[in-house]
Nucleic acid binder design. Structure first.
Lengths: 211, 211
DNA sequence: ACCTGAACACCGTTCAAGT
DNA sequence: ACCTGAACACCGTTCAAGT
């Protein structure tokens, strides 16, 4: 039972493991103390209180999202590759990402990606305010899509499900459309399709045609 | 002090008011009972428990998002008008929308909007699987953008803020770009710009050019 | 059918006391 | 500098008892 001195890192590691497995609600100070084999109050000495413990976990997660290396030949391809990388990273830490989001740090977490996008948009020939708009639009698109996708996965069987709502006469005269909407989308395919479409529109030489 | 019989509606109204003002964390069963002037346990008789009380509030919110009437002359304009309407509705109920999201019902909440989009995409000449892709891409885009925007607003002063990170040499050779990224975006403008760009790309006659 | 208070098993947090 | 148990003020929930 002899345990070496408790450290802040040790507390954070145990807390992160708990959150990764069962989500933040499963992280109680008493449960964490039990896991670590110490008194509850020791944890307070090392990390302050529960709120700042969660803050520290979030901070860690933000730092872990640091390195983004685009790949591909054209700027458009490289932008899409950034999108893919982000998608994979996010899907590995669903609970922690949700916490980053709740704390309003989503934007900060994506700053490395934003810098990569700045690079690519510049390589595509965009400058100044128009380049900034393009970077932000793509960034919002990627992050937003991933949030929606996460939401879909977490959701229980929706009632009424899309399947029921998109019966044969939901889209009159287009049974193929009804059928397509009645079956669940392929998230990866739709993600790439969306990012490609937006990128294409934003990098297009002439911005005059406004919908 | 004579109070008329407590009803389920009354409980939901008081709970919704509490959540609208101070968020779900401020909704405690004991506090709600105090507000209503009853014993805590009476609430349990009417709504089950806290979890199903929150479920009921979410259900209400989903139903309130029912009516969507597009406006505008072209399909593209009408799609953008749907986006605008959704944005306004969402911004009026931030806490409740977050709860809908947490419960994984975001998609269901947007079904009326989806139906409007189906209509417009069809009017623009898209059919079958390609129409379904366009509807979903636009829907994900709108919902995702609004989630990200909400997140930005809720976030405290970000450290380090974008202002500090986008100093003059962040985008070498393009000071105008650096300046644009250092100042906060105009969310409404960026929203419209994004939706328009994606819509333009998706409704374009030739889908052959893939990034 | 509806309401009640008492009790239970949990929380996060503080604090004085230890070494 | 680090750890501890006891105590406080909260939770959500259950239950037997009232009308």
């Amino acid at each position: 039972m002899a345990r070496s001195a408790l450290t802040r890192e040790e507390v954070l590691d145990a807390a992160a493991a708990l959150v990764r497995r069962h989500g933040p609600a499963a992280l109680t100070m008493r449960g964490l103390a039990a896991e670590l084999g110490t008194a509850v109050t020791s944890i307070y000495w090392h990390v302050g209180n529960r709120e700042s413990l969660l803050d520290a976990l979030v901070e860690r997660t933000v730092l872990e999202m640091g390195a983004i290396r685009p790949s591909g030949r054209t700027p458009a391809e490289r932008i899409v590759s950034v999108a893919r990388l982000l998608r994979r990273e996010l899907r590995e830490r669903p609970h922690l990402i949700a916490m980053v989001h709740e704390r309003g740090l989503t934007e900060r977490m994506f700053l490395p990606a934003q810098q990569a996008l700045v690079q690519e948009v510049g390589a595509a020939g965009l400058r100044g305010a128009r380049a900034a708009d393009a970077v932000r639009a793509i960034q919002f698109q990627i992050v937003g899509y991933l949030l929606v996708e996460r939401n879909r996965e977490r959701s229980p069987a929706q009632s009424p499900g899309e399947g029921e709502l998109w019966g044969p006469d939901a889209a009159p005269g287009d049974p193929a459309l009804s059928r397509a909407l009645a079956s669940p989308p392929d998230p990866e395919r739709l993600f790439l399709l969306s990012v490609r479409a937006l990128t294409r529109a934003l990098l297009a030489p002439d911005p005059a045609s406004r919908g």
